[in-house]
Each structure stands twice: as structure tokens, then as C-alpha cells.
């Protein structure tokens, strides 16, 4: 597939052609005080210069609150939610895109989730290679790369004056054709320059963990003091899980206002006290020790057992945002030492 380039001064036109017709365009923008993916209404607000968004783009495919159907009290009919528009997710970082491929496993496991899959099919993901990995990025340690193409339809690389666009799938190819008017064929030198940047970025990733042996052995540390030590300072808030691009737990609630009801699913967090709390009052993970243990084991052991891939893409968000500096790499390191 042909690699094309987009001159930076044509960026606004490029955005305009991506949001033509019914197609929705999502890109990183400041919402309140935080950077996150939101529908583009004003091209000048699109911010591709920052590293990762605070909230990962999983929120487009698996929204924090999603109405599964609506109903009226006393009625017997279910109203399906609206059919979604097709869309383009622009500027997803390779780790976040890889996370989608990982989460695909879960949403197509015992049941093919229609809501998630519809969004996956209808959206084209245009990734942006990381030229400057952050302090807590560790994607290469968990099978990723600052220029990984997994989960992407197009990989975009920022060069000095241009963006290089490399289509990777049929959807990506179609997208590149749709912006032909504002792009041109890339020169051989451009591609070399991009590869150089990818290599530089790879070398810049400072933090590492050797994951070999962790998935099969982590459950052996079930009663290790490590979990209590980690849980001591844990606040039990939802930052690490809500901002995680691979965390996918949800809860289902019926919400009624007047006579109108809706069945929704919303993000849940294994760090919350009420997570999987039984109706009897029994809590299978009664304290933060068990909850912390679950979070790490789920990502680095149970998920691997089921789907043969670590459910962590090394984006570093849980490390960056944890209010008490609980650092997943430190936990894994301690686990390795204890094994």
C-alpha cells in the first residue's frame, strides 16, 4: 500500500476531509483541564503535540456509560439505542491501539459483544507514532513499540514539516484515498526519516521489565507480603483502572427517571469496594490487598492464561496518575525478586 504524506499547512483541510458527511472525527482535545479524545468541531482545537491523552481512546469503543436499551415503566418494549455513525479516531498512540486488539479478545470471548464490535467495525484508527516516549513508558517490555502498527488502520509519523501516512488495512487504504486531494506520494527519503525516528524513540524508552516467567508464576505469590505492602498506601480509587487502555470491567445498572428507564453498562473498577460484591454481603476481595493482587494478576497472569497476551501495553498512565505512587513496574520487580 502506498505511503503518502501530508504537509502540516494542509492539516486543517485534512481534518475537514476526514469529517465529511456523517463520518465522526475523534481526536485529542482539551476537555476541561484534561486531554482526551472528543468529536472534532473546531480543527484548531486538535492537539497532537502532547504525549498520551489522560483518558485513553478506549472510551470511544467502550464508553464509560453506554445505554444498552431503553424502556418505559409498565411497558414491555425495549428500544434499541441509536445506530452509531462511522468514524475516524485520529492520533491514537500505538500503545492505545494495541490495547484495542487485546480487549477485542475479551469482547469476543464467550459472547460477541455487539456494542463494542459495532464501534470497532465502524471506526478507522489512525495512529500517531511516538517520537518522544514519556518517562514512564515501557511498551517494548510488554510486546509493543513506539511505532507499533497493531490495531491501527493507518500509522502516521510526524516529520519536520509533514505527516507521513502509512495505510495498513483496507479501511486505512480507503481513508488515505479519501484525503488524496490534500496529500501527495511520499518520497523514499521520507520513509527513511520516519524509520530513523522510530528507532530513536525505541532507544529512548527508559523503563523496562523482563516479563519472562511472570505470567505462570505470579499466582504463586498469592500470600506474599508484597500485596499487603502495596495495598497499605492504596486509596482504592479508580484512577489506575479507569485510565488504563486495557481495563475492561463493567457493571450493569438500570436507571429510571420518571417512567423512562434505561439499562446501562458503565466502567467498573476492581479497586472499588463494591466490585463483585455479592448480594449476600460477601465480598470475595474484602480488602485492598486482594484488590491490588487482582489487578496485577489479571493483567499479567489470568489474561495471559486465557488469551495468550499480557493485558498491559506499557502506556504508563497508572504510574503517572497514581496519587500515592504505586508503580506497576516496581510491583513486578518485587514479584520477580520474590519468586
Amino acid at each position: 500500500m502506498e505511503i503518502i504524506k501530508l504537509s502540516k499547512d494542509k492539516f486543517a483541510d485534512f481534518l475537514a476531509s476526514l469529517s465529511e458527511g456523517e463520518q465522526k472525527l475523534y481526536a485529542p482535545q482539551w476537555v476541561g483541564e484534561s486531554l482526551r479524545f472528543a468529536p472534532v468541531t473546531d480543527s484548531s482545537k486538535v492537539e497532537l503535540g502532547m504525549a498520551n491523552t489522560t483518558v485513553p481512546p478506549k472510551s470511544i469503543f467502550f464508553p464509560q456509560t453506554e445505554t444498552l436499551y431503553r424502556y418505559e415503566l409498565g411497558g414491555t418494549e425495549m428500544q434499541q439505542p441509536q445506530v452509531r455513525d462511522t468514524g475516524v479516531v485520529l492520533g491514537a498512540r500505538p500503545c492505545d491501539a494495541r490495547a484495542l486488539v487485546i480487549v477485542d479478545n475479551l469482547f469476543n470471548w464467550d459472547l460477541e459483544d455487539p456494542y463494542y464490535n459495532e464501534q470497532r467495525v465502524k471506526n478507522t484508527v489512525v495512529g500517531l507514532a511516538c517520537n518522544n516516549p514519556c518517562a514512564n513508558c515501557f511498551c517494548p517490555s510488554v510486546g509493543g513499540d513506539p511505532a507499533s502498527t497493531e490495531g491501527l488502520d493507518v500509522l502516521m509519523t510526524e516529520l519536520e514539516d509533514v505527516y507521513l501516512l502509512q495505510p495498513l488495512t483496507e479501511k486505512g487504504q480507503k481513508l488515505c484515498q479519501s484525503v488524496a486531494a490534500v496529500t501527495e506520494k511520499a518520497a523514499a527519503g521520507d520513509q527513511d526519516a520516519a524509520e530513523n525516528l522510530h528507532q530513536q524513540a525505541r532507544e529512548q524508552v527508559a523503563r523496562k521489565i523482563e516479563t519472562e516467567g511472570i505470567p505462570e508464576n505470579l499466582p504463586k505469590l498469592w500470600e506474599n507480603t508484597l500485596w499487603q505492602e502495596t495495598a497499605n498506601s492504596c486509596l482504592g480509587c479508580g484512577i489506575c483502572t479507569f485510565l488504563c487502555p486495557t481495563c475492561h470491567c463493567f457493571d450493569i445498572q438500570d436507571e429510571v427517571e420518571g417512567i423512562e428507564g434505561r439499562r446501562c453498562r458503565m466502567w467498573d473498577s476492581c479497586m472499588f469496594k463494591e466490585y463483585t460484591l455479592h448480594a449476600s454481603g460477601h465480598n470475595p476481595r474484602p480488602t485492598r490487598r486482594e484488590r491490588t493482587r487482582n489487578r496485577i494478576n489479571h493483567k499479567y497472569s489470568y489474561f495471559v492464561d486465557k488469551f495468550d497476551v499480557i493485558a498491559c501495553v506499557g502506556c504508563g498512565r497508572c504510574i503517572n496518575y497514581c496519587p500515592v505512587n504505586i508503580d506497576i513496574l516496581e510491583i513486578l520487580q518485587q514479584a520477580k525478586e520474590a519468586l
Binding site: 476537555v31 476541561g32 483541564e33 484534561s34 482526551r36 483518558v55 464509560q64 486509596l235 482504592g236 480509587c237 479508580g238 484512577i239 479507569f242 485510565l243 473498577s269 472499588f272 496519587p323
Partner: peptide, 16 residues
């Protein structure tokens, strides 16, 4: 409204 709209209800403010 602008500030509250961006809340992700992680409850870290409450828990801390």
C-alpha cells in the same frame, strides 16, 4: 459545568 463534565468518577478526591 465544564469542569464537572470532564469528571470520570474515579472517586480519588473522595478516597484521598
Amino acid at each position: 459545568e465544564d469542569k464537572f463534565a470532564s469528571c470520570i468518577r474515579c472517586y480519588s478526591c473522595r478516597n484521598v
